[in-house]
Design a protein around this nucleic acid. Structure first.
Lengths: 205, 205
DNA sequence: TTTATTAAAAATGTATACAAAAATTAAAAA
DNA sequence: TTTTTAATTTTTGTATACATTTTTAATAAA
């Protein structure tokens, strides 16, 4: 389902392009971002470019007019946040997640077992998203959403390197939620994320 | 110590003025924000005004070109986040807070007992800020910082209405941190915030 | 009345020009 | 050489004009 980007605003288009280039490595960490350069390259004026750069700054992808180069500490900080927030969200999910979402959660597990790399990454993201939404807390959803870009840079590593047990852990979490065991779901989510963190640290270390 | 605002950028000045007007009620919830109107009123062009409005949108003070009118649910959501994050931060503080900050924490308690309303509000904010910083997690500090404006709108209520035990609770938290008892500090912080929430709900209900 | 339709206006989005500030380079002094 | 200073260039900040979209108001049809 291709969206016609010409119908979106220049700000939105340039934001999407820049974000994409940062996330896929075309604009590697440390790259200097110059408004005029980007503007003429994308065929817009500086005005919408400025605005999309600000957006990326709020998202943490650009700092001081340079593409962010996340450190090991950034990695730890992001995961510590996720452990707190998604642990709570998993607990909520156990209490409140509707049958339909439970189904969707299980489908993510299945895709995790037999999908392509691309599909697995999407399913992984969706799995966490469904649970986060179960928190029913817009501030939380927003916060994690904003952290998503940074997280993505790392999660790519995890999935591309096929961390062992990743999908098994998802399935266990799914089972705990299905059994409506909030405490167990939260604990499993926390150790799942801790394992993700450890694996990332191991890979990049 | 007055800062010369003429030396700051138009964007920064207009941001500061708008934020202030929203927080002190001059621009009440629901007010329509029109770029041109604000621009001519403050004597700037639309360009810097646009940028400061975006900033306030990211902070959650403006939604859909209107000043936010926080609901009871917003209140609950914000406090739920704080309970998770500041609970963790209190635990960190018990482990890592340097002697000097401990001192500063105690001063906040003292001011809470014998300061003016204005001073008490500042001290209250500082008390929480010191603890949040002890998390040593930039993502967390940033997140809470962004939530600060919304929180402020409510915290004003709490302090102006003189919630009973507020300072006693602060002192207990301080004692637990001083005793380096992380688990107790976290628990006390959580119930402190829960009490704040309950009081706010009681006032506005 | 109520609901559609259309005209007017108001407000936002974008481009462009110029001013101010920051970064870079070149020249002079140590 | 190295360091300072000044000149130059680059980049960002701001104002303004115009285009596009959204909102509002007015009119006509149901």
């Amino acid at each position: 389902m291709l969206e016609n980007d010409r119908s979106r605003s220049a700000t939105h288009q340039s934001y999407a392009v820049l974000r994409d280039r940062i996330l896929n490595g075309q604009l590697p960490g440390g790259t200097k971002i110059v408004e005029e350069k980007i503007a003429s390259e994308l065929g817009f004026s500086r005005t919408p470019i400025r605005e999309s750069i600000r957006k990326l700054e709020y998202e943490g992808l650009i700092i001081n007019k340079r593409v962010v180069k996340p450190t090991e500490k950034d990695l730890r900080n992001n995961f510590q946040m996720r452990i707190l927030l998604e642990g709570y969200a998993a607990q909520c999910a156990a209490s409140f997640l509707p049958e339909q979402d439970l189904q969707a959660l299980y489908e993510c597990v299945e895709i995790g077992r037999k999908g392509t790399n691309e599909e697995i990454m999407d399913a992984n993201e969706r799995f966490h998203e469904i649970i986060v939404r179960a928190s029913n807390n817009a501030v939380m959803i927003d916060t994690i959403d904003r952290m998503q870009s940074l997280i993505y840079l790392f999660r790519k590593t995890v999935v591309l390197n096929q961390r062992p047990h990743l999908i098994d852990e998802h399935e266990q979490i799914y089972e705990a939620i299905k059994a409506r065991n909030g405490e167990k779901a939260a604990d499993l989510m926390k150790s799942h994320l801790q394992a993700d963190l450890d694996f990332c640290l191991h890979i990049i270390g």
